[in-house]
Amino acid sequence: MTRILVCADSALPDGEAIKVEGPGEAVAVFRSNGELYALADRCSHGNASMSEGYVEDNGTVECPLHAARFCLKTGTALCQPATEALKTFPVALLDGQIYVDVPEAAA
């Protein structure tokens, strides 16, 4: 695993998201109801950035293009048109900084 610095904890307000580039793919990091989550940034239904989606108070994010919703905790697709889950990634808060752990890039 590779640990990537996302941002300072204070730079990600509740209900917002930020996109970071991982070694293999982009990751969207969300704060919802005070909790941190990380999902693959690309919607499983189409070419949309989930970091630009709508973070809901119920722990979901809505795709900005097609209104598909995903669970922030599990990545599960919750409604059509998406049917495939998004990958999830571990998030850590260390010394006031947010980090996400992503797999190493394939050689």
Rank of each mutant, 00 (worst) to 15 (best):
D41M: 01
A85Q: 14
K87E: 11
S51C: 07
V20W: 07
N58C: 12
P23C: 05
L36F: 15
E16Y: 06
G24Y: 03
K73D: 10
A85K: 15
E52T: 05
L39H: 10
L72D: 06
T88K: 13
G24W: 03
A107E: 05
A106F: 02
G53W: 14
A85N: 13
R3G: 02
L36M: 13
L72K: 10
R42E: 09
P64Y: 13
A48W: 15
T74N: 11
N47F: 11
E62T: 15
I4D: 01
H66F: 03
M50F: 04
H45L: 12
G24Q: 07
E56A: 12
I18W: 00
P103H: 08
V91I: 05
S51H: 07
A40N: 10
Y54Q: 06
T74Y: 06
E21F: 12
M1R: 05
D41Y: 01
G15F: 04
V6E: 12
V61L: 10
V100Y: 04
F89V: 01
E52M: 15
S32T: 03
E84H: 07
G96F: 09
D57W: 03
T74H: 13
C7A: 14
A77M: 13
S51G: 06
V6N: 00
I98F: 02
A107C: 09
A67P: 00
S32F: 00
Q80H: 15
G34K: 05
E21K: 14
H66P: 04
A68R: 10
V6A: 05
V29S: 08
A40M: 01
D95V: 00
P13W: 08
A8V: 00
A68N: 03
V102D: 01
P103V: 02
N47E: 12
K19L: 11
Y37W: 13
S10A: 06
A11Y: 00
L36N: 09
K19N: 06
A77W: 07
L36D: 06
